[in-house]
Amino acid sequence: MTLPEDYLKYPHRSHGMDHDLYPWSNLFNRPTVRWPGDKSVALWITVALEYFPLTPNDGPFRAPGHMVTPYPDYRTYTTRDYGNRVGVFRIMKVLDALGLKASTPMSAKIAERYPALLKAVQDRDWEVIGHGVDMNHIHYGGMDAAQEAQQIEDALVMLEKHTGSKPVGWFSPARSESENTLELLAEHGIDYACDWVNDDMPYDMTTSAGTITAMPHTMELDDRQLMVTLGQNEETYQEQILAAFDLLRSEGKSHGGRILHLSLTPYVIGQPFRIWALRKVLETIMASNDVWSATPSEILKVWRGK
């Protein structure tokens, strides 16, 4: 066998990245940031409020968490629904008790379908992050740019209509982008996006429609990733979050403020047998008195003034 000649050609083999979205940068050589009150760690909590239709609309792949069995997949649909009816309120109770504010990547359909849930979110002043129309509306390489622009527009308009303001942040459903997504988001006035997982701090990305800041939305410490995908128990979950906090706190003292992001999924962490782990994590880290609880917009405001 022989591979085509191009297989041994390396057109991007030069300093930095193999694309133009951001320059390479060493986290430990950057200007430091100081959080309000000189806290070492900014705590950023997201609670994903996602709507998975019973009728998955298949593109090249389904969003993780979407329907699994042949139609009608009641087991998956109702399990996701459990999160939006029950689990999320259990999470709110834990956060309320500690006076912590969250942000929520929200399917626009959630705002439209469940006004009581939206009111509970708004009563708590959570920041709403654009998260697509619903979990059928994913972005993927090769999709039509006009269709993608329409999906973004639809999600933002629907969220604005029901929440009263247009989100400035975005988290793509299924954490998936096309080659046009970032540019389209910038055109739609999005200030930060949560898709890329290559850093522990924010950094700026360049698109032809302007700058968009990457927020370090964790995948590694996501409750769904650890307890559903990898099958770990909640004991192990909380142990790892606390280990991350310890390291970030120590770097916060030596290298400037760090961010601990808690990515919460109501149908996962909101189960009765798991919720204790969230309570324990938050009680432990808040007892350090070295944490600034903040929304992504609050974090970015301070980070940009560094």
Partner: peptide
Amino acid sequence: RPYPDITPYS
């Protein structure tokens, strides 16, 4: 996933 599969890359 199709290009650009940003999650495993990043």
